[in-house]
C-alpha cells in the first residue's frame, strides 16, 4: 500500500513539474516522453516477442512523413492525422515484415537494419518528389485540440505524457491477456508455442504491426512538435537508441522501458557541460550494466492471477 502511495505522489509531482521547470527542461522531458513511447512500441516487438528488430526508426519516419506531407500539401489537421499516420506505418510494417517474419535472431536483425537504411536513403533521394530530399519538409502546423493550439513546451508536455499514459494503460492490458501471453510463449520457445496451438507467424506479424502503428502515431506528434522534419532524424543510430532503452530498462517491462528513457535521454542532458566525456562514461555504464544485470534495470514482473490469492487464502 505504501508503495502505491509513493508512486501516486511521484506521478502527480511529475505532472505538475512544468509549473516550476523552465522551458528548456520541459522540452527535455518532452523528448524523454517521445523516446519512451517509441521504446514502448519497440518493446512490444523486442521485449515481449523476442524479435531482434533494429529498424524501428523506419516506422517512426513513415508516420512522421505521412503527417508532414498530408498536412503541408492538403492542410489536413494534425490531430486527424494521428490515426492515419499510425495506419500507414502499420501497413508499411506489414508489407516489409511479412516476407521476413520467419527469420530468426541475428538474421532478422540484419534485415531490419537494412530496412531503416533503405527508408532513410529513399527520403534523402526525394522519393516520388514528396519528401523534400535531405532538406526535409518544413511548415508543418501545430496540433489544434478543440480550439486550443498546442505550441509551447508546457502544452506539448501534457500532450505527450497523456498520450504516453494512455499507451501504458493499453499496453499493460494487452500484456495481461491471451495476446500478451502468446507473445511471451513465442519469446520463450517458438517450437513449443507452435506445438501448443499458437499461430506464431501471425502473432509475430501482429506484434510488428502494432509496434509500427504506435511508432507512426509518435511520428505525427514529433512532426507537429518540430514543425520541420528531415531524414537525419530517422537514422539507424536512432533505432539503436530505442533498442538500448528497451534492453537496458528491461525487456518486456513497461516501467523498465520508461526508466530506461529517462536514463538514456535525460542523463546526457544533465551532464551536458562535460560534452564528449559524458558519452564515454555512458558507453562504459552500458557495458557494466550488461555484465552485472543482463535482464535490465527492472525486469518484467510476473503476471498476477486471482487464483494465486485464492490458494493462499485456502492455505490459511
Amino acid at each position: 500500500m505504501n508503495r502505491k502511495y509513493i508512486t501516486t505522489i511521484i506521478v502527480i509531482a511529475f505532472f505538475l513539474s512544468p509549473l516550476f521547470l523552465n522551458s528548456y527542461w520541459v522540452d527535455v522531458l518532452n523528448n524523454i516522453g517521445i523516446y519512451a513511447i517509441l521504446a514502448l512500441s519497440l518493446n512490444f516487438i523486442l521485449g515481449d516477442t523476442g524479435l531482434f528488430h533494429m529498424g524501428h526508426a523506419a516506422f517512426f519516419a513513415v508516420g512522421a512523413y505521412t503527417t508532414a506531407i498530408l498536412n503541408t500539401m492538403y492542410h489536413i489537421p494534425i490531430i486527424l492525422l494521428i490515426p492515419f499516420s499510425g495506419i500507414t506505418a502499420a501497413i508499411f510494417a506489414y508489407l516489409v515484415a511479412r516476407p521476413i517474419i520467419h527469420l530468426r535472431g541475428d538474421y532478422l536483425l540484419i534485415v531490419t537494419i537494412g530496412i531503416v537504411e533503405i527508408v532513410r536513403i529513399a527520403l534523402i533521394n526525394n522519393i516520388f518528389g514528396l519528401t523534400g530530399g535531405s532538406n526535409g519538409i518544413f511548415g508543418i502546423s501545430r496540433p489544434n485540440l478543440l480550439g486550443l493550439v498546442i505550441r509551447r513546451p508546457e502544452h506539448f508536455f501534457y500532450y505527450i505524457w497523456i498520450f504516453l499514459a494512455i499507451s501504458v494503460f493499453l499496453f499493460e492490458r494487452l500484456r495481461n491477456s491471451r495476446f500478451g501471453r502468446a507473445l511471451n510463449y513465442i519469446k520463450e520457445d517458438e517450437v513449443a508455442a507452435e506445438g501448443t496451438g499458437v499461430n506464431i507467424a501471425r502473432y509475430k506479424l501482429i506484434a510488428f504491426v502494432i509496434g509500427a502503428f504506435w511508432a507512426g502515431m509518435v511520428g505525427n506528434i514529433y512532426a507537429s512538435k518540430m514543425t520541420i522534419i528531415s531524414p537525419e532524424s530517422f537514422t539507424f543510430w536512432e533505432s539503436v537508441v530505442y533498442f538500448c532503452i528497451v534492453i537496458l530498462g528491461g525487456s518486456g517491462s513497461i516501467s523498465g522501458v520508461i526508466l530506461g528513457s529517462f536514463l538514456l535521454i535525460g542523463l546526457p542532458e544533465i551532464f551536458r557541460e562535460f560534452s564528449q566525456a559524458r558519452m564515454l562514461a555512458f558507453g562504459l555504464a552500458m557495458i557494466i550494466m550488461m555484465i552485472v544485470r543482463p535482464q535490465g534495470l527492472i525486469p518484467p514482473p510476473p503476471r498476477k492471477y486471482d487464483v494465486y490469492m485464492d490458494k493462499k487464502f485456502a492455505e490459511n
Binding site: 494487452l174 491477456s177 491471451r178 495476446f179 501471453r181 502468446a182 511471451n184 510463449y185 520463450e188 520457445d189 517450437v191 513449443a192 508455442a193 506445438g195 501448443t196 496451438g197 499458437v198 501482429i206 502494432i210 510476473p302 503476471r303 492471477y305 487464483v307 494465486y308
Partner: peptide, 24 residues
C-alpha cells in the same frame, strides 16, 4: 520444451490458447 520463465499456471494455460477467441 516448457516456457521456462513463465509460471506453471501460464504454461498450462498456453494449451487452451487455441480454444480462445479474444483478438487484439
Amino acid at each position: 520444451r516448457l516456457f521456462k520463465e513463465l509460471s506453471v499456471l501460464e504454461n498450462a494455460m498456453s494449451g487452451y490458447h487455441c480454444r480462445m477467441k479474444a483478438g487484439i
